[in-house]
Amino acid sequence: GSMPVVWPTLLDLSRDECKRILRKLELEAYAGVISALRAQGDLTKEKKDLLGELSKVLSISTERHRAEVRRAVNDERLTTIAHNMSGPNSSSEWSIEGRRLV
C-alpha cells in the first residue's frame, strides 16, 4: 500500500526553526489580545483574569506582560478607539497594570 497523502505537506523546518516561529506566534498572539482589550476600554477583573490564563498558556513573562501593556497604553490609535467606544478615563487601570510589581 502506498503512503496516504498528508495535506498540507510538512515543511522542511528544523526543531530550532519551529521553536523560533512558535515563540513569535505566541508573542504576536499575546500582543494582539492586549491591543484588542485596550481598544475596548477599561481593564476589568475579567480581562485581568483572562490575561493571567493566557500568559501561562503562551509562556509570557511578567516583564513581557508589562511591556505589552505599556505599549498599548502609549498607543494613540488604541487610546483613541477606547475613548470613542467607552469614554475618557479608561486608561488608569491599564497604566497601573503596566507598572505593577508582582
Rank of each mutant, 00 (worst) to 15 (best):
31 A>K: 04
42 D>T: 11
76 E>R: 12
46 E>W: 06
32 G>E: 07
91 S>F: 10
4 P>H: 05
46 E>P: 04
96 I>M: 15
87 G>V: 06
21 I>W: 00
68 E>G: 00
64 R>C: 05
54 L>N: 07
1 G>H: 08
30 Y>C: 00
93 E>W: 10
93 E>V: 06
38 R>T: 03
3 M>I: 13
82 A>M: 08
47 K>S: 11
33 V>R: 01
51 L>A: 02
11 L>W: 10
10 L>E: 15
99 R>P: 00
77 R>P: 02
67 A>L: 11
32 G>W: 05
94 W>R: 08
56 K>M: 05
6 V>R: 11
99 R>F: 05
36 A>N: 15
21 I>A: 05
88 P>W: 02
88 P>Y: 01
91 S>C: 11
8 P>I: 13
67 A>T: 12
78 L>T: 08
17 E>G: 04
88 P>N: 03
55 S>L: 04
76 E>S: 12
32 G>P: 04
17 E>W: 05
12 D>P: 04
99 R>C: 08
89 N>S: 13
80 T>G: 11
81 I>M: 07
24 K>D: 01
102 V>Q: 13
25 L>N: 06
46 E>N: 14
56 K>N: 06
7 W>E: 15
53 E>A: 09
29 A>E: 12
16 D>E: 15
69 V>Q: 01
52 G>V: 06
92 S>T: 11
25 L>F: 02
68 E>L: 05
62 T>E: 15
6 V>H: 12
34 I>Y: 00
88 P>H: 02
73 V>C: 09
71 R>L: 10
20 R>A: 03
97 E>Y: 12
82 A>Q: 01
10 L>F: 07
